[in-house]
Design a protein around this nucleic acid. Sequence first.
DNA 1: AAGTTGATGCAATTGAGTTGCAAAGTTGTT
DNA 2: AACAACTTTGCAACTCAATTGCATCAACTT
Lengths: 136, 136
Amino acid sequence: MNENINNKLNAKSIKPTAMRQLVLHVLAEQKSAVSMQELEQKFEKADKVTLYRTLKTFEEKKLIHSIDDGTGSIKYALCRESCQCRPEELHVHFYCTECKQTYCLNDIPIPSVNLPVHFTLENINMVVKGICANCI
Amino acid sequence: MNENINNKLNAKSIKPTAMRQLVLHVLAEQKSAVSMQELEQKFEKADKVTLYRTLKTFEEKKLIHSIDDGTGSIKYALCRESCQCRPEELHVHFYCTECKQTYCLNDIPIPSVNLPVHFTLENINMVVKGICANCI
DNA sequence: AAGTTGATGCAATTGAGTTGCAAAGTTGTT
DNA sequence: AACAACTTTGCAACTCAATTGCATCAACTT
Ligand SMILES: [Mn+2]
Ligand SMILES: [Mn+2]
Ligand SMILES: [Zn+2]
Ligand SMILES: [Zn+2]
C-alpha cells in the first residue's frame, strides 16, 4: 500500500499490518461515513471480527471516530490530521434520509451549550437529519 | 388510575386501556428517561412486546419522545404538555456516565446550526455526555 | 530455537428491537 | 343477545448489529 498510509498508522502508533493498511486505504477514499457492514462488502474476503477489532483499534488511537447516527449501525470516518477528539474540536454530523448517507460536516463545530450548574461535559454527539445537497 | 392520566391519553387521542394507563402512570413519575427494559422491570407481569407497542403508540401520538443516547438502548420520556416534537422545540439530552441516567434538559433548546447550502433540516439529536449534578 | 506478545479467523453468544399470529377484548349493528 | 369488525394483548420466534471465546498464526525477544 501507499507510503502515506503507513505514515498515518505510524503517526498514531498503530502497527501497520496488511489488514490495517487495507482498511485505512478504503476508509480514506470514502466521501461519507461507513458502517462495518458496508466496509466488509468492500473487501473480497474479510472477517467481520477482524474488521471490528481493527476499527476499535483505529478509534482508540484516534485515527477514526465513530458516529451513532440513530440508524442502528455505527458509522466510521477518518479523523482530521491532528484531531484529538476533544469536545471542542467535534463537528456536526448529517444523516440524509434520502440517500441514507452520513456525512461529517467537518467545518461545522458543535455549538457550545450552557449546561445546568454542576453538570460537567465530557463529550457531545450532534446529528442533524434531513436532505443533503445531492438529493435536493 | 388517576383522572389526570386519562385526560392526557384523551388529549392525544390514545384509547385509555389498562396497560396504557399503567405505563403512562409509571412514565410520569420518572425523573430521568427510561429504557424499555427498565420499564419492564417496574411492573409485576409485563409483556415486552405490549410495552414496545405501547411506547410506539405513545411516541407516534407525541405523548412521549425517544432518546438515542448512544448507550445501545433507546430511552423514553414524557413530552411537555403542548409539544409537537418539531425541530425548533427540541431540547438537549444529557447522559451521566456516572449514574448512567439520561436526563431531558427541557430548558436547554438545541442551538441552531448553519448547514451547508442546500442541506435541509428535518430533525436534530443532541446528546451531551458527562457528570450530572447529583454525581459531582 | 524457544518464549512472549499481538493479530487474525471462525464459531458462538448477546441483547435490543421487531414481526407473525392467534386469543382476548372492545365497539357498533342487527 | 348475537353477530361482525376492529383493536389490543401475549407468546414464540426471528432479525441484526455488536461482542466474546478460543485456537491459530505472525512478529518480535531472549
Ligand atoms: Mn465526523
Ligand atoms: Mn427529552
Ligand atoms: Zn442525500
Ligand atoms: Zn449522574
